[in-house]
Simulated scan of single mutants.
Amino acid sequence: MEKFAVDKNGFYGEFGGAYIPEILYDNVEALKNSYLEVIKDPTFQEEYNSLLRDYVGRPSPLYLAKRMSEKYGCKLYLKREDLNHTGSHKINNAIGQILLARRMGKTRIIAETGAGQHGVATATVCALMNMQCIVYMGKTDVERQKLNVQKMEMLGATVVPVTSGNMTLKDATNEAIRDWCSNPSDTYYVIGSTVGPHPYPDMVAHLQSVISEEIRKQLLEKEGRETPDYVMACVGGGSNAAGTIFHFIDEPDVKIVLSEAAGKGLDSGLSAATIHLGKLGIIHGSKTLIMQSEDGQIEEPYSISAGLDYPGIGPMHAHLAKTGRSQVLAVTDDEAMAAAFEITKLEGIIPAIESAHALGALAKMKFKKDDVVVLCLSGRGDKDMETYIAAFENN
């Protein structure tokens, strides 16, 4: 991954870095200096992998979706991250970071969450490991993801509704960083995506890379080869996408196709399509593409999906898109909802609305009959049922 890997200063090409308040410098520096050593340590690996196997239920299945394959004229495999404990890929990262926090002697865990899946995963692991847990969540998201809030509270976490800004993911992240600045010595901030100051984007990508590691083994078993023709995933901050593509980035024959949330349309002013619309800037400690106005003010993103309405994008994804290694398609709310109802009818799987954005890209592709396509189904749709029912009743 040399060509696309992060450099020693935390940059992927022109994107990345660590732009942080001085009070957090020691914390972030300690993390930067220890994270790779710790996560590659055999005793860490043993504990991490046994929890992934026995607690999360990994490996997650690689499922050949026959009816969808027929419809789109390819061999479509779904990487079933929705079948993990807690219902999404988020648990892979939460376990890894909290094991790391414990080794660093931290006693208090904070997190931000949009759709609530990262919050639930963090609260779950904190319950398992007897750690104090505070989750920041925008008030708008608290209302549209009530079930996940109730789960977090049942797991013993304190959920703090954030009422600044648009009251969504960006604002929750702002508050979590503020908390971290106030409590740097005992607190560990579990970032849920490939965003934030270095080393977070690289660390989260490493912890999620179990997804593509498994895909290679499973494809070898099913297709007699380790590499597909296409890998596909939805991208907001970018952790499920990073995990899905991690072990394929240096395979030039594997095409990377990612979907971002176009909301009501790219030109509607109600969108979260950062790669299409963003300009270079700094957000949450990282230099990346950001949705911003002419004078550099961050613009509020919009998506029907609580997990994709982030005004930035992970620096790794900004770099892959900029260099042409990944193709990024913009999928609207309506296209994502149509894709969600389609997979439900054809395969009996209700996906998270985030994952439905990845499915929404299939109709924009032209495949050959023998193309092997692996799409990450990053989460299950339980948390989105109210949105789905409302859409169903309106049609």
Rank of each mutant, 00 (worst) to 15 (best):
V6H: 07
A18L: 03
L24D: 11
N27S: 15
N27H: 09
L31F: 14
S34H: 06
Y35D: 00
P42F: 13
P42I: 14
F44T: 06
N49Y: 13
L62E: 15
A65H: 07
K66T: 14
M68F: 07
E70I: 00
Y72D: 10
G73H: 12
K79H: 05
L83Q: 05
H85A: 08
I95C: 02
G96Q: 03
R103Y: 09
M104R: 12
M104A: 13
A111T: 08
Q117C: 09
H118T: 06
V125P: 11
C126N: 04
C126H: 02
L128K: 02
L128Y: 01
N130K: 12
Q132C: 10
Y136W: 08
Y136M: 09
M137N: 11
D141M: 06
N148F: 08
V149F: 01
V149M: 05
Q150W: 11
K151S: 06
V159N: 03
V162I: 15
N166A: 14
M167E: 14
L169P: 10
A172T: 03
T173H: 07
E175F: 08
A176N: 03
W180I: 10
Y188N: 01
Y188H: 15
Y189T: 03
G192M: 09
G196Y: 07
P201R: 11
P201N: 12
V204G: 07
V204E: 05
H206G: 01
V210C: 01
K217M: 11
L219T: 03
E221L: 15
E221Q: 13
E223V: 00
G224V: 12
P228H: 14
Y230I: 02
M232D: 05
M232E: 08
G237C: 09
G238T: 07
N240K: 00
A241L: 02
A242Q: 03
F248P: 04
I249S: 04
I249F: 05
D250Y: 13
I256T: 00
E260R: 04
S271F: 11
L277D: 01
I282V: 15
H284M: 11
S286G: 10
K287W: 06
I290C: 10
Q292M: 12
Q292L: 10
P301C: 05
S305A: 14
S305H: 02
A306C: 02
D309P: 09
G312E: 04
I313N: 00
A318E: 00
Q327K: 15
A336I: 06
A336R: 07
A339D: 04
I343L: 14
I343E: 10
I343S: 10
E347F: 11
E354P: 08
L362C: 03
K369T: 14
S378A: 12
R380N: 15
D382R: 08
D382S: 09
Y388Q: 10
I389Q: 14
N394V: 11
N394M: 08
